[in-house]
Amino acid sequence: MSFDNAYESLLGHEDSHWAFGTGFSEALSGVNREFPVGVDREDIVAYCLMLGDDALIFSQRLSEWCSRAPELEEDIALANIALDLLGQARMLLTRAGEVLGKSEDDLAYLRDERDFRNVHLAEIDCGPGPGGDFGTTIARLLVFSSWRLALFSRLRGSADPVLAAVAEKGLKELAYHRDHAAQWTVRLGDGTDESHRRMQAGLERVWPFVDELFATHAVEARLTGVAVDPASLKSEVDGVLEAVLAAGGLSRPADTRAARVAGMAGRDGVHTEAMGFLLAEMQHLHRSLPGAVW
């Protein structure tokens, strides 16, 4: 071995820790990857992209906090949540890719904006950019993780074995995300006048994007037994949010909702203006070097 170096002895020679915390393929090893019969695979692809893009785009947003959080502990926590969501996204894009004959990277880097299926809540700027602050970020995380946790707890029973396995694995992660967001919501709501004002402002900022989470898309309606109808989650999620807001002395914003665009929104590939910039940044290097291997 030519790598005679001072730290080799610290590592040992097994590779089990290689890319520690970033693996995902082992996570689903042993899971049956056959598609359920009688279901349109195109619909399963679309559904995997919806849930996968939600996670990918929100992960991209959360990772913007890395080195910018209010405390080191929070740098670590937000990066951890971003990593969990990135892991979920990779499993879901990989599943969609099995039908399309594409890799997770083809789907993440080579699709155009109109082909992304994530909800608007995942993509808007909630800080650390000019679109928000830590309070806004926590408001989004609270809503998103409460909704996705409710969704995944039902998705465990999906007729698609991969979706069921992704949900099973993601459940513990999402429970932690929701808990983290709920604790901060209460802390900020209760802490100081300034933190209360900012937390309330954060809720007001994200609230118009909540309604979209519960709108049933045609794909979801067709995938009976495979997909979860998001409309069925509303009362459970409302209950969770109400309890958290009450504990933080915060008020539920009025039920305003962002208008759709000619009847369409994120699930139809119609996004906000923020999305183009997000994708430009995320995709540019991959697209700049066609044929490169990473």
């Binding site: 890319a19 970033t22 990772s63 890395c66 990066a79 971003a82 990779r90 990277d105 991959h286 990473w294």
Partner: peptide
């Protein structure tokens, strides 16, 4: 430039 590298770098 890849999701795997993104995960490794973030970690």
């Amino acid at each position: 430039p890849s999701l795997r590298r993104k995960a490794i770098l973030l970690a």
